Amino acid sequence: MKRLPDFLAHEHDTRDPNPWLALYLDQSTPLPDHVKQAWLADSSSLARQFLLPFIRPLARTLIVLIQVIKVFVPRRWAASRFLHWLLAEGLKRLVSPEANWLVMRHFHLGGQILEFIAKNSPVPVDTAPLRPIVLDDLKDELFLKHDLNLFNFVIRLNQALRFTEQQLGPVAAPDFSMIVEPPIQLEDFPHGALNKVDLQTAIECFTPIYQLFLTDNDFWRAANSLQLDETIGVYAATILNAPQHLILLNNKHPLVPQSTLRAGYRLVLHGLSTEMLHALLMQLKMAQADKQEA
């Protein structure tokens, strides 16, 4: 039987209200219950409470030190294959099932959102969606490919729009056919005795490792891809003619690059923004289907 997180397993106490329960019950953010439950269960874990405050400053110090080391390393030196093997093995052995599930969902959701924009664009745009099912799939350099896909999509879309002298615009009946629930289940991810590290702590740990084994250019691009949240949000809001949906974006402005020191924290915001945009598209897809059946 699936174990409920603590904030759902206990009765509400008016003298000591649980903040995680309040966030779970709140409906101001567009997240489905199963995603919000996993997110908050991970966020309320002991690892996040006690490990993250120590790991975050250490990780940021390592980012500075590695940047200094990179001055003396050949510019093109990288070990991307080993990096992705290390990340996949670390996720399998140490990271919570909720965090692993959310990481794997992110590849599916990000690809679907880009496909949504491409399908509803006035010009044809190629996409290269990533659909990993098991953690070992990440070893095929999926983190790096995810960043490359995002920049390549923005470039291809805008090259095509400029060439044809067109712009994205509202679509009366958007195509939501690609927006689906990813075919991965939380229960399928490792539940070992050591799988306790939460998503935010894992990201802070992995960020300097990511920097160490990639070129400066790859790491800088990965960190600054997070600021494209605003760009992708604007594209989707334009198609939907709903600018109010940009209100919860935080990784902005795309024209003002930020320091890589906060890349771990901003990556968490990126994941949450992707989940919320996908949830919104799912809601609109169901509303469109109900309207067509009426």
Score class of each variant (00 low, 15 high):
S225G: 02
P243N: 13
P254N: 11
L249K: 04
Y265I: 01
A263L: 00
I232Y: 10
Q283I: 01
R221W: 08
A263N: 00
N251D: 01
Q283H: 04
L255Q: 13
L269I: 06
T274A: 05
N224I: 02
I239M: 07
L284E: 15
L249M: 11
L281C: 06
K252H: 00
N251Y: 11
V256F: 09
N250S: 14
H253D: 10
T231E: 05
Q227Y: 07
R262E: 00
S225A: 03
L281R: 13
H278D: 09
Y235M: 15
N251Q: 02
Y235C: 14
L228R: 13
Y265S: 05
L284K: 15
L240T: 10
L280N: 12
L248W: 13
H270R: 10
S225R: 06
L248Y: 15
N241K: 14
T260Y: 11
L280C: 08
M282V: 10
P254E: 10
N251S: 00
L255I: 07
D216P: 02
Q244H: 13
R262W: 02
A242E: 14
A223C: 14
L255H: 11
I232T: 08
T274H: 04
S225F: 03
P243I: 07
F219K: 09
N217H: 13
Q258M: 08
D216Q: 05
N250A: 12
L281T: 05
L228W: 12
L272P: 04
T215D: 03
P243A: 15
V268I: 15
M276W: 08
K252E: 05
K252L: 03
W220G: 04
W220S: 12
Q227I: 06
L281A: 09
L272F: 01
L255G: 08
N250P: 03
V256A: 13
A236M: 14
G233E: 05
D218H: 06
